[in-house]
């Protein structure tokens, strides 16, 4: 097997891991798997395309715009999802609301960018040579970003007061309120930081992956698959699951063709749900 394919798999996997990680950030306090999370990825790619690709802004300026817009999107998303969840009382509210949010954002992206693919130029045009495999520095950047984000979030959950609050909100909302944890703030911050994280991922990865205005749901599914395989709610699981399906996808794709890549990840998902429903790093899931 060609080393290039494995390296490629690791890179694609780190993109999926980042999506899974941002879904974990939202999932931790809310127990909601956010269908609209992939739209943040598209937002990042769109901002990169517009500011750097079209307007030729310097990177720091584009980055600032990215973070501000992503925060705004995260806030709006939180309202769009949490209001129906809190008020409707239907057990499917979260899935319907996040899906509706995803479709709304998707159609918003489609208005100005109907036939655009968000590739813009790479920050680093150099290529690294690792044991004979050529790989764009941009891809290494995405991988590094993923590792830092995962380690940071893992430590945040384990070591800080804020991390403990997040876990408390997840376990029992009412008790958390009694204990003086600002549950609503914790949830807002989770949505906002999750969206900023995934938008950064989209921004960094757009030059080296195909992102179209309507591909948000596809990335959501991949991130979701990664999260399940790794174990929902666990940062380690998000990384492990992302890398696993990235490599699987890449290997199958290169030997059997593109459609089989997607098939193989869904088959892996089905298999893991039968054999080990809580994933590799997950605890027993208590859903909404």
């Amino acid at each position: 097997m060609d080393l290039q394919i494995w390296v490629e798999g690791l890179y694609i996997g780190s993109v999926y891991a980042l999506i899974a990680l941002s879904m974990t950030v939202v999932y931790q306090p809310t127990r909601i798997m956010n269908f609209a999370q992939g739209e943040g990825f598209v937002l990042g790619a769109a901002i990169g395309y517009q500011t750097i690709g079209v307007w030729h802004w310097p990177v720091w300026q584009a980055g600032a715009a990215l973070i501000l817009l992503a925060m705004a999107m995260g806030y709006v998303m939180e309202r769009m999802v949490m209001l129906p969840v809190q008020l409707s009382g239907n057990r499917f509210a979260w899935i319907i609301a996040t899906l509706a949010a995803a479709l709304i954002f998707q159609s918003l992206f489609n208005l100005p960018y109907a036939n655009v693919t968000f590739g813009y130029f790479e920050f680093f045009k150099t290529r690294a040579n690792i044991f004979g495999a050529h790989i764009a520095m941009q891809k290494i950047l995405v991988f590094t970003f993923m590792v830092f984000a995962a380690v940071f979030y893992d430590q945040l959950l384990k070591r800080t007061l804020w991390g403990r609050s997040i876990r408390a909100v997840a376990h029992n909302n009412d008790t958390s309120i009694i204990l003086g944890i600002p549950t609503k703030l914790v949830i807002k911050v989770a949505f906002i930081s999750g969206t900023v994280l995934i938008a950064c991922a989209g921004f960094l990865a757009a030059p080296v992956i195909i992102v179209a205005p309507a591909s948000g749901l596809f990335f959501t599914i991949q991130g979701f698959t990664a999260a399940i395989i790794g174990g929902v709610g666990s940062p380690k699981g998000a990384v492990a699951g992302g890398l696993m399906i990235g490599i699987l996808d890449s290997v199958v794709r290169s030997s059997l063709g593109g459609t089989w890549g997607v098939f193989s990840t869904v088959m892996a998902l089905a298999l893991i749900l039968v054999v080990r429903p809580n994933g590799f790093f997950g605890k027993r899931v208590v859903g909404r």
Binding site: M33, F92, I95, I221, T225, L273
Partner: peptide, 9 residues
């Protein structure tokens, strides 16, 4: 929890 997601996939 997952059935909705599986059907989507």
């Amino acid at each position: 929890l997952y059935f909705g997601m599986i059907t989507l996939a």
